[in-house]
Design a protein around this nucleic acid. Structure first.
Lengths: 261, 261
DNA sequence: ACCCCACTACGTACGTCGTACGTAACTAGG
DNA sequence: CCTAGTTACGTACGACGTACGTAGTGGGGT
């Protein structure tokens, strides 16, 4: 009969014990495999993370990996959890939830710079890994001085992480594209810019041409990041909590144009 | 000798003419192929979009696709541009940049609900497609009443799109996971919830347990979406433009912990 | 102490993917 | 009209995720 490891249980990987009660002791650990996968992704990008490659990096046969990781998607989950251990959550919150949140966001940004594959491999469903729980708990601790409902706090956390992720993806997009591109470095970007200049010179996009024409001379990315996030947090600051009534009147709700699919 | 279509030019697909000067007239158009790919992605998800599948849907041989699309990544670009044509940008801005921006964000959200693969396939590098330029131009038109620098406006656009994308990914994550999961519907989610409950009952995450324990009874997603975005826009509203000085003092900058890679 | 069997390790194999390349048919510019 | 550049597409290659079979291993029940 098939071994229990083969029967496809819809189990979360974190619910499955690392070591089975019976049988020989595994030659590797989850942490080892996660570290190997992270090493591969750091060095070769997320597209380099294949079961064969990670198995080779771990030092075991390809199919042996499936004893530790039932599906490749779970390997991603292991990877995200592994790098999430890099969060430094040792210092207790200062009491200034705004500053602490910005510091946390800064850590997330740094994490994503160290592991550029993180935004692509992270998914909202990864919220149950040990380090994700640790991170969430700490974030809620940071937000304790904030006078808001629990659901609002969770919303804030999601928004902050979403914004950080979006911001970093923008920051890294050119580098990522250059890394993936099969052409000499810079050539693709040059072709893009040439095309953009050609389009803008046609006069069909006057406002865009005006904005892009003035140039983006050496913006301070760190300052821009803080400014953008600070604006988001301002929206959560008490005292200005009220939604402006002029909004919901004119904005489009989704109900009327949701697809029937 | 190799045909020019084969030599790998780092050209942007939008810079390459749809119809070559010489040779027989192509049997299909870019729009046809993009529509076919969108049809496949809508019906089977982004992982169903293979060159073979799209070629079959288009009604041509697999390798004939490469006459229209040099690489698969360019097919993604075609798809994103194709659905971006669904934006209704006919009405001139009302003069209320805040309301108009929320309406635009609502359109983006609706678009992503109709095409759930959009957030995953969209990349910041897709900003040069015809419909992306049209969208950007319109957005800048909407923002004309806002007294801010061009770079700030571009920042706002990026942030809004980032937040909308992050929000929708969160909204759709459970449905997407159910669609991808090889297990009976709901079973995976149930297993996740059971695991979460088990973890929380251990007492290691008291704040998280408190927040999640109160339950999220039937939140109004539309209202939540508007509230979240409204908060973001509040940060851009003039009169409160100044960054709070307490911020940059205590927040973590990236310079000190950027990886040398 | 022993045995049994769940479990580990891993080689082989299948179907699918992106796409390089060769060839035949076709069509506009000289 | 010729001919060169282009379209159409079949074949083929290497890499992927992973189902499955088999051999070996070691801990719990007797």
């Amino acid at each position: 009969m098939a071994a229990s490891g083969r029967t496809a249980n819809p189990e979360i990987i974190w619910a499955r014990p690392e070591r089975a009660a019976r049988g020989p002791r595994p030659a590797h650990t989850r942490a080892e495999i996660a570290a190997a996968a992270v090493r591969v992704a750091d060095a070769e990008g997320p597209e380099g993370v294949s079961m064969r490659r990670v198995a080779a990096e771990t030092g075991c046969g390809t199919m042996s990996l499936y004893n530790y990781v039932p599906r490749k998607e779970d390997l991603y989950e292991l990877m995200v959890d592994a790098v999430s251990a890099e969060y430094d959550l040792s210092a207790p919150p200062s009491g200034d939830w705004r500053a602490d949140t910005l510091a946390l966001a800064g850590q997330t940004r740094a994490l994503m710079h160290r592991h550029p594959w993180l935004p692509r491999l992270m998914s909202p469903a990864h919220g149950f890994s040990p380090n994700a729980l640790r991170y969430l708990e700490y974030f809620l601790w940071v937000l304790e001085p904030l006078d808001a409902e629990g659901s609002t706090k969770m919303e804030l956390i999601s928004m902050v992480n979403g914004v950080v992720s979006a911001y970093v993806v923008n920051e890294l997009s050119e580098a990522e594209r250059a890394r993936t591109s099969p052409f000499p470095p810079g050539q693709e970007h040059a072709a893009r810019m040439a095309h953009l200049a050609r389009e803008l010179s046609g006069g069909a996009y006057p406002r865009l041409a005006g904005v892009l024409g003035t140039g983006f001379a050496a913006v301070d990315l760190d300052a821009q990041f803080e400014r953008a996030l600070g604006r988001l947090l301002d929206g959560f600051a008490p005292g200005r909590a009220g939604r402006r009534q002029s909004v919901s009147a004119s904005s489009v709700t989704l109900k009327e144009n949701r697809s029937p699919r």
